[in-house]
Simulated scan of single mutants.
Amino acid sequence: MLYKLNLEHILFLDIETVPQKPSFSELDQDVQILWEQKSQYQRKDEITAEDFYDRAGIWAEFGKIICISVGYFVAKGATRNFRVTSFSGDEKSLLKQFKQLLQEHFNQAKHLLCAHNGKEFDFPYIARRMVIHGMNLPYKLDLFGKKPWEVPHLDTMELWKFGDYKHYTSLKLLAHILGIPSPKEDMDGSMVKDVFYKENDLDRIVDYCELDVITTAQVFLRLRNEELLSEEEIKKV
């Protein structure tokens, strides 16, 4: 099935998220209580809700999106290009820009969205944040009433599971075992919050997010047993 898909019909994406506030103490009291209740089963008894707040960006109810990076294939004759772009900064603004991209360029039945662990994280997170901001969901994120085979989402982690629902594989590990050259990263996901709130370096986060999009596309190519993208074929726009 993967071999039959047209690469130009797939939008690869990745998001970066952070907690709503720089620190637990900046939340109002009601939200602090709600966070304590939400996180009580994830943290160990000796870890307080305040100590655990660094992970709040994982939940759409307590976090926000600061970057959505996307990539898509463009073929001109025998030439293959992979174009990468990002929407970052104010969450409502970047969500509107991303929605516009979907509606104008990836809104047909043939179009698919692809992310690593996207079905568990990226796709529902974007949808929830759109609802919170009072935005109507674009067709590609509105799953109500759709049958499983009608959902226009691909997930490289799910593809690698081959039906094994217990198996989790990080993008970094999957890229390594598939022989995909590791990009030169100067950060990892655990650093995003501090880079955003303490270093105020959004550009660094955008670069990191775009590298993940490129790696996801490379993994997808390997799953199809196709030649990897060269640096010359990757264009940032």
Rank of each mutant, 00 (worst) to 15 (best):
1 M>D: 08
2 L>E: 03
3 Y>K: 13
3 Y>V: 06
8 E>T: 11
10 I>S: 00
19 P>D: 03
20 Q>W: 06
20 Q>N: 04
24 F>H: 09
25 S>D: 11
29 Q>W: 09
30 D>V: 03
32 Q>A: 06
34 L>I: 02
35 W>G: 05
38 K>G: 06
41 Y>F: 13
45 D>C: 12
46 E>T: 09
50 E>Q: 13
54 D>A: 11
59 W>P: 04
66 I>E: 05
67 C>L: 10
74 V>A: 13
74 V>H: 12
75 A>N: 15
75 A>G: 11
76 K>G: 13
80 R>I: 01
81 N>V: 04
81 N>C: 15
84 V>F: 05
87 F>C: 08
87 F>D: 01
88 S>I: 01
90 D>E: 14
97 Q>C: 05
99 K>R: 13
102 L>K: 04
103 Q>N: 15
103 Q>V: 04
104 E>R: 00
104 E>N: 08
108 Q>D: 11
109 A>W: 06
117 N>E: 07
121 F>T: 08
130 M>W: 07
130 M>L: 12
131 V>H: 14
133 H>D: 12
137 L>T: 09
141 L>S: 11
143 L>F: 05
145 G>C: 12
147 K>P: 10
149 W>I: 06
151 V>E: 15
154 L>I: 02
155 D>K: 00
155 D>N: 11
158 E>P: 12
167 H>S: 12
168 Y>L: 14
170 S>Q: 12
172 K>D: 04
172 K>Q: 06
173 L>N: 14
174 L>W: 02
175 A>Y: 02
175 A>H: 06
178 L>K: 04
184 K>V: 10
185 E>R: 02
186 D>I: 06
189 G>T: 02
190 S>A: 13
193 K>I: 01
193 K>V: 02
194 D>E: 10
194 D>N: 14
195 V>D: 08
199 E>I: 02
200 N>G: 09
201 D>H: 15
203 D>C: 03
205 I>A: 10
206 V>F: 03
207 D>T: 03
208 Y>G: 07
208 Y>H: 11
213 V>S: 12
217 A>C: 08
218 Q>A: 05
221 L>R: 02
222 R>L: 07
223 L>E: 12
226 E>F: 14
232 E>F: 03
232 E>L: 09
